[in-house]
């Protein structure tokens, strides 16, 4: 269908190009990338430096200092066990970032491999793998993660496992879709004409084209994983006390909401800032790399 129309339209795309160019620049992608990168950079700095600089221990209870409001000594106050909230926040940043990075990496490797296999393997391989992808995508993500983490037993490691298992299918879809569309492009056909073997075709022409969409997906994914992990910890399935983790800090603070609102505010803002950072970065990268952008529904699943 589309082929027959493109076949006859000559290159009078000057006007269209102009309009497209206009739109792309109008999105201020650089601002988004810079802002998002800045937020994430700051966060990484806090996670690295914070614990070193802080005079407090994140887990030692100081009962006489319970529920103190923000002050010079405790810029974000103390919690119900007298621990410094700011210090716990910095340690929590380590947990969140490490967890998000680990789970994203597993998803990425697993999903990309499956996607590549499905797109380049035989028809049967494709059918089987894509059914697997369909099955994974049929599960509500957080529920599946919740059940896996619950069955394995509550711990941070199991949260990583659970969140890795549920998210890889989106990568598989994106990679397969990209490879299949690139495969039809004339430059790949040319390459086939001079007898390029399959593995070199993948390396030379296909892989470079999946890097960008996968990178964008991964950046956006980091944010959703931070959210999901915080949710699981909030429910009591992730980090176990006394580990400092943002989600469980909110769970701990909920009973003191009226008297010590900073207990839920600080970790909440931290989670939000992290996710905003990753989202800005991901959106910015997407607009830069791939104006046709990924289906929004692929990133929506936890």
């Amino acid at each position: 269908m589309s082929k027959s129309t493109t076949e006859l339209v000559p290159s009078n795309v000057g006007l269209g190009g102009l309009y497209r160019r206009y739109r792309r620049f109008a999105l201020h992608t650089n601002t988004a990338i810079r802002l998002g990168g800045g937020v994430i950079g700051l966060l990484v700095l806090v996670a690295l430096v914070g614990p070193v600089v802080s005079p407090y221990d994140p887990t030692t209870q100081v009962l006489e200092m319970r529920l103190r409001g923000p002050s010079l000594a405790h810029p974000l106050g103390t919690d119900a066990l007298g621990r410094d909230v700011a210090t716990r926040l910095a340690y929590g940043a380590r947990v969140s970032l490490a967890l998000a990075l680990a789970a994203t990496l597993v998803r990425l490797v697993l999903g990309t491999t499956v996607g590549l296999l499905a797109a380049t393997g035989g028809r049967l391989v494709d059918i089987l793998l894509m059914r697997l992808v369909d099955i994974q995508l049929a599960f509500p993500g957080l529920v599946l993660a919740l059940v896996i983490a619950g069955v394995l037993g509550p711990s941070l490691r199991n949260v990583v496992i659970a969140l890795s298992i549920v998210g890889w299918a989106s990568y598989a879809r994106v990679v397969r879709g990209t490879v299949l569309s690139v495969k039809e492009r004339p430059f790949v056909q040319s390459a086939m004409l001079y007898g390029t073997p399959w593995h070199r075709l993948v390396k030379r022409h296909l892989l470079p084209h999946i890097v960008n969409p996968v990178l964008v997906l991964a950046t956006l994914n980091l944010g959703t994983i931070v959210l999901a992990a915080a949710g699981l910890s909030y429910l009591g399935l992730g980090a176990q006390p006394p580990t400092a983790e943002w989600g469980s800090m909110i769970a701990d603070g909920r009973n003191y909401m009226r008297s010590a609102p900073w207990l839920i505010t600080a970790p909440g803002v931290a989670i939000m800032a992290t996710v905003i950072g990753f989202n800005l970065l991901g959106d910015g990268l997407r607009d830069r790399f791939d104006p046709d952008h990924l289906d929004d529904r692929q990133r929506r699943r936890t």
Binding site: R185, Q189, S190, A191, L193, Y194, R204, H205, P208
Partner: peptide, 25 residues
Amino acid sequence: IDIVFQHPGASLNPKRTVAQSIAEP
């Protein structure tokens, strides 16, 4: 036998230089 396609933009891999593209065969 070799082939030249209609859309020159699509028949060259945008991520490879001219020399790299010609070098492939």
